[in-house]
Amino acid sequence: MGLCFSPEQAESFSEIEGLIESSQTIAICAHTSPDGDALGSTLGLRQVILSKWPDKCVVGLLADDDQVPRIYSYLPGAGQLVHASDFDESVDLFVSVDVSVASRLNEGEKVMRRARRTAIIDHHPCDDPEADAYFIRPDAAAVGVLVCEFALQLGVEVTADIARCLYCAVATDTGRFQYQNADPESFQVASLLVDAGASPSELSLNVYQNFSLSYLHLESLVMGRITTFADGKISYSYATSADLERTGASLDECDGLVDVVRSVASSEVALFLKEVPGNKVRGNLRSKTDKDVSQVARSLGGGGHKAAAGFTVEGDIDQALASALPQLVALFSDARKQEGNDSE
């Protein structure tokens, strides 16, 4: 399988194109706590629209009041993103990328509610999308893949700046093409983007080889706390607000720590918890096998994919562990029960 040009995708993209065509003011926003796919797709889609319709007013929004994470600040247009809480206009069209659930837009939800029309481009499963037009394809490795294919359908030239943004989206959401979602389509899109001017070394130097000393000190603490459950099949660790204060690391540097926990030999599921402001704990879940961690995230008010999901809960680290660990253990208990039923 290479690039996807299915009739269903083409029809959905045409509906979104129609909304863009009939709109003069457009806002694009991704989910709260944006990752590389969220930011890369937001920036890439904005440039795609402006390339096709240069007379339109298109603004990229940040769902939260935080700044763009330092490791993604190199992306073209990152400095032009606007905090949704500071954006008072009522736009003709609001486009959600990498998110289908309105509540995960945080401050962006208010802008969405004021918009005349709404659209969604996403790869997270959603049973009841709230939009005038949408395309949601859970088997896509990243929204960056879908935005690239949308650009190709529109006949937009993929410029170097578009390619740099979308390559970040695809490469980060596939874990540098190491996760289970790294499929032939993602490699073909990546090849197209590199050919258009994206630089794998630029991404690597900015995202994966750009850690502050304070972050590395925090990572050593997290590594020292890694604990396993269920005969080593579950690994978890955590970082407290005191850890962040003591090391000087920032919250936006913590996203990659789940991969440190994930790297434990024999572990199939990884959990990383970090305390965030407001007496809350944010959890990152990863699965290295067929275990579906998204169901655990959804039960805790979050969401995501089978192999990568997240959630935020009220309370402290101990309370978050008490909520999440039994459900993760149950993933393996349920599997053993199923194996027993199959053998009967």
Rank of each mutant, 00 (worst) to 15 (best):
Val296Leu: 13
Gly304Lys: 10
Leu300Gly: 07
Ser294Trp: 09
Asp290Ile: 00
Ala297Gly: 10
Leu285Gln: 04
Lys291Arg: 15
Ser299Asp: 14
Ala308Ser: 12
Ala320Thr: 06
Val313Arg: 11
Ala330Thr: 08
Leu321Met: 13
Gly283Cys: 05
Val293Thr: 11
Val313Phe: 04
Gln327Val: 00
Ser299Gly: 15
Arg336Phe: 00
Gln319Phe: 01
Asp290Arg: 06
Gln338Thr: 13
Pro326Met: 02
Val296Asn: 09
Ala320Leu: 05
Val281Thr: 06
Pro326Glu: 08
Thr289Met: 12
Val276Arg: 05
Leu331Trp: 02
Gly315Asn: 04
Asp292Phe: 04
Leu325Gly: 04
Asp316His: 05
Val313Asp: 13
Phe332Ile: 06
Glu339Gln: 14
Pro277Ala: 08
Asp292Cys: 03
Ser299Cys: 12
Glu275Ala: 03
Asp318Ser: 10
Asp292Leu: 05
Gln295Ala: 12
Thr289Arg: 14
Lys291Ile: 03
Arg286Gly: 10
Ala330Pro: 00
Thr312Ser: 13
Gln327Gly: 03
Ala307Gly: 07
Ser294Leu: 09
Ala307Asp: 12
Lys288Ser: 12
Gly301Tyr: 10
Val293Ile: 10
Gln295Pro: 00
Lys280Pro: 04
Ala330Tyr: 08
Arg336Tyr: 01
Val276Tyr: 08
Ala330Cys: 07
Ser287Asp: 14
Leu321Asp: 04
Arg282Gly: 07
Asn284Ser: 15
Ser333Asn: 10
Ala309Ser: 15
Arg282Leu: 03
Pro277Glu: 11
Gln319Ile: 00
Lys288Phe: 00
Leu331Lys: 08
Pro326Ala: 03
Val296Cys: 11
Val293Gln: 11
Val329Thr: 13
Ser323Phe: 01
Ser294Lys: 04
Ser299Lys: 14
Asp290Lys: 04
Val296Phe: 06
Gly310Phe: 05
Gly301His: 10
Gly315Thr: 06
Gly315Gln: 09
Gln319Asn: 10
His305Ala: 05
Lys274Thr: 07
Val329Trp: 00
Gly302Asp: 13
Asp292Gln: 10
Ala335Cys: 01
Leu285Trp: 06
Leu300Glu: 11
Val329His: 10
Glu275Pro: 01
Asp318Leu: 02
His305Tyr: 06
Gly302His: 11
Gln319Arg: 11
Gly304Val: 00
Ser333Gly: 01
Ala297Lys: 05
Gly278Thr: 09
Lys291Trp: 07
Ala322Phe: 01
Lys280Leu: 12
Lys280Arg: 15
Lys306Glu: 14
Gly303Met: 12
Arg282Lys: 15
Thr312His: 06
